[in-house]
Simulated scan of single mutants.
Amino acid sequence: MPEGDTVSQAAGRLHRALAGHVLTRSDLRVPKFATADLTGRTVLDVTPRGKHLLTRIEGGLTLHSHLRMDGSWKIYAPGEPWRGGPTHQIRAILGTADHTAVGYRLPVLELLRTADEQRAVGHLGPDLLGPDWDPDKALTNLLTDPARPLGEALLDQRNLAGIGNVYKSELCFLLRATPWLPIGELPADTAARIPGLAKKLLEANRDRPARSTTGVRDQNHFVYGRAPRPCLRCGTPVRQADQGDGSRERPTYWCPTCQSGPAPGRRATPFRGRI
């Protein structure tokens, strides 16, 4: 699933291609909005909100999209072949005289009044890469349910917006806690570092073509996607298991030596970690 930095990059590409230009082509291939015609309207801006994309259009309209697992927006020049996927996977086409933006496999696509954007994104917590970022509010949200596993709390976009499965695993490693540790069991000083550390990671990657959380060349991640290779810190084989709240299970990675707390296949251990 694209994370906040990836969505921010997608918004930037769309904004540069479309903002300030009049739409000469408009095709929304979802039943509810299939008859909507946006041609002749100017695209005002494309703004990311967490993992959501808000394309604002003249006349008080916003095209709201979400990429989820495998959605994408591709930008094409006139005459350039469209290679984002087969035609039947196209959900949206927005064209100007100079560029065409094509949305593939978009699981969420809706046209709403700009004044009603909160209906789509009002539930989100502070955006790690947005102007509304509030670390104190984010921390308060995270600690609302002390019994909730750390990994689940980090993924909940109502707490703070922008963290996905990669950053979840990497943040837990940097905190030296397993993703299954109840967040309320983190020492107060460790918990307080979460918002700042999360923001630092996303900001460092918002303009990078390849995400890195380690600062080590050719080793982009500490644990994510590394099972069963050795931990970069201690050499113990990295482990993988699914984690979820019952609605969706996601592959989760951790080091059983460096990270304290409960995990599949072992008893809970007292938290002993420090950043």
Rank of each mutant, 00 (worst) to 15 (best):
A11M: 06
H88K: 14
D134Y: 06
G71C: 08
P179R: 08
L181E: 08
A77L: 15
V30H: 09
R176C: 06
T144G: 11
L106R: 05
G246P: 10
D45A: 15
P230E: 09
T35R: 15
G20D: 12
A241K: 05
L201P: 03
E203V: 10
A120P: 03
A19W: 11
L106G: 08
S260E: 06
L154P: 03
R83D: 14
R83G: 01
P195F: 10
Y104E: 06
I163Q: 00
I163A: 02
D242R: 11
A161T: 03
A77I: 02
D136F: 00
R49V: 09
V22S: 13
T87F: 11
K32V: 14
G130D: 10
R68A: 13
R158N: 08
A241W: 02
P228W: 00
V216H: 12
L44Y: 00
P187C: 07
L150P: 06
G235V: 04
L54N: 05
Q89M: 05
P251Q: 09
T214C: 09
L142Y: 09
T213G: 01
R267K: 10
G79M: 05
P182W: 02
Y167F: 15
L139G: 11
H64S: 03
L129M: 06
G265L: 10
A177C: 03
A204C: 04
R25S: 15
L111D: 10
P48T: 07
L61D: 04
V166T: 11
R266A: 15
V102C: 03
R274Y: 07
P107T: 04
K200R: 14
P251H: 06
S72A: 15
H66S: 04
D127M: 05
Q9F: 04
K137W: 00
H52R: 10
P126E: 02
I93K: 03
G225E: 00
L232V: 12
S8C: 06
G164A: 13
